[in-house]
Design a protein around this nucleic acid. Structure first.
Lengths: 351, 351
DNA sequence: AGACTGTGTGAGATCGATCTCACATATATT
DNA sequence: AATATATGTGAGATCGATCTCACACAGTCT
């Protein structure tokens, strides 16, 4: 009556072969089979061949779970980023995955969605897997007991894109403050004085640093900071559109805008278009983080570019160095940014 | 002398607490502790509380590896896609991760980079993890013994974006042929007769289907297929640039181009710009798969959009339905595409 | 011959959680 | 009082791979 039952005898779930099966087929003990397959200790030539043949025949493929339980380590690394849909993180995730594969590891990925709670529970869940190490872009710069916990348990951790207070471990970030400062100084040099900032949540490390670069440049240019010039948004195109519209709907809107990441830059572009504001005629724009789209618009968008191709690789390299037992002081990389001048900033004569 | 040794006594690797530790602290057996924590079988109230307290105190967090070894299943699903950097796949990966998390699972991600070998070894490596199920965008439509192997071992598998010959399992794809056909018919309706196709490797399922829609539309329009109108490229912006340049450097270039994915569409855009070819004046363009950039260009690009927000969720839903024991015939979803007419196609009077 | 070393092998413990079973008690039913 | 049933608990097996240890035999050296 039930076809699944009819199938039961012939075609039922073919379980993967275990070492015991191999040993039985080769007429040796499990211990000997293990020695033959992992080539350690003494094994007779003939025996070794028998075991190899048996393993071959059964399609034996070890059980990494059992191995990991014994050794205490699963050859997997975890990676917790803000959002894989952000091309910046997508690139990083990709590079990490490639390097992990080269090192015989797999990659578990999780999005914190910039929520601390999510980051914590994700981390806990991965930690209980005896995962070997983590690469994390922490959501919060301050609130990081969970990261301290990792370090206390001696699990290798590399922070990426952002560092966290009181966490002493390997890290790879860029010079956010310097990059932001360069950008804003450039705007000031072009005659702008009412310079807007479209920034992300201040919990986030990069947002803080970029904000601080913005402030430093203003100060150096003798411009008083003005809260009306600053809008806060989440890092999505949609939120950035709204924030930009708010910022530019006031009486005395900025003459230039600095956006702290590429999704926000895109949001600003959309907002300007919908408001009929033209770049660079009506307003100048410069964004942190380069992105494909930046060269497709007219005019092309001037940006502060990060060495995105190096960040993921550098972080993965650091992690696998630790995993291979290298000790020593934590290494802290800070990459330089590079301003790419295109056409979205114009000189301002009045002001 | 060695600071690491000095540290050894006080601050050495704090191993996570095991059930045994909890049981010892609560003065009960492991069995009872397990019952108390997982609430099954009979446990005295007082005992249960003691155990809870002990677990709390030690920060006990079960070892998923050990649990998985016993149960035979690790609460992780695997996902093998072409390339997370492609926004289409990034979106899918993100949606799958979210749903996996809701179902108490983690996500292991791998890029096949469209290489069959990579796909096979990645799959083998994940299979030996006793991973519970897979979502795969198979590189090759024909060569799929590894997928058959999965099914033989009764590991739930959902194919996404592409199906594979002779593999009978759940799948989620879009109507590639219909979408491509609509696009090309639209071009024909606008008076074009020399219609170029920029396509991906023919191993790939979507590429085949889109090609076939292209051919069908030509045939229906009474246009003889012409190999000189077809260029093959890998699915990256860079390769697409080259291919487009080749295609449009010939004597009688196409008057319209249909590109089979968004990265190729971007490549074509760059190529046209570098060649001084203007859209839609000199050439009309329509791409498969919508993308952010499409609305930022001038003119905006007409595309055949896929319901990208539904694909990942649908696939994950299918997978978790299987994991929760639902049997029955494989379900095969095929989503409709939708043409979004923007400004990159112009009517052609001559021809 | 007796004491070595060098090879080869298997029995059994281990990793941590879970589950079955047997064995206690306590309460309820005849 | 005798039997049944409900409740609570622990000893030990299990998942699969690996590693320690003990043991067996070969050949070598005094």
């Amino acid at each position: 009556m039930d076809p699944a039952c009819a199938m039961a005898k012939s075609e039922m779930v073919r379980k993967p072969a275990t070492l015991k099966d191999v040993a039985a087929l080769a007429n040796v003990s499990r211990a000997t089979a293990a020695r033959a397959l992992n080539s350690y200790g003494y094994v007779g030539d003939e025996t070794a061949q028998k075991v190899q043949a048996a393993a071959e025949k059964l399609g034996y493929r070890g059980n990494r779970l059992a191995q990991a339980l014994r050794s205490g380590q699963l050859p997997i690394v975890g990676c917790i980023l803000g959002d894989i849909q952000n091309p910046f993180f997508a690139r990083i995730a990709h590079d990490i995955e490639v390097l992990a594969r080269e090192c015989g590891h797999n990659l578990v990925i999780g999005s914190s969605e910039e929520e601390l709670g999510q980051e914590i529970s994700l981390l806990a869940s991965l930690q209980s897997l005896s995962i070997r190490g983590f690469i994390v872009a922490p959501t919060s710069a301050d609130n990081n007991a969970h990261l301290k916990g990792l370090i206390a348990e001696n699990v290798p951790l590399v922070l990426i894109d952002r560092v966290a207070e009181g966490i002493d471990c390997d890290s790879v970030v860029v010079d956010n403050e310097g990059g932001a400062r360069k950008a804003v100084e450039y705007l000031i040099g072009m005659g702008h004085r009412r310079i807007g900032l479209l920034q992300d949540d201040m919990r986030i490390f990069t947002s803080r640093e970029r904000m601080s670069g913005y402030r430093a440049a203003l100060a150096a240019g003798g411009i008083a900071p003005d809260d009306r010039m600053v809008a806060v948004s989440q890092s999505t195109v949609e939120h950035a559109v709204d924030a930009t519209i708010r910022l530019f709907s006031q009486k005395n809107p900025p003459t230039a805008l600095f956006t702290v990441d590429s999704l926000m830059t895109q949001g600003a572009l959309l907002a300007f278009r919908s408001m009929g504001i033209s770049i660079p005629h009506d307003v100048s724009l410069i964004g942190f983080d380069d992105f494909n789209l930046a060269t497709f618009t007219d005019p092309q968008i001037t940006v502060v570019a990060q060495p995105v191709a190096e960040i993921g690789r550098a972080a993965a390299r650091l992690l696998f160095d630790r995993l291979s037992g290298q000790g020593g002081q934590p290494q802290k990389f800070r990459f330089e940014t590079k301003m790419i001048v295109r056409g979205s900033v114009s000189r301002r004569r009045d002001a």
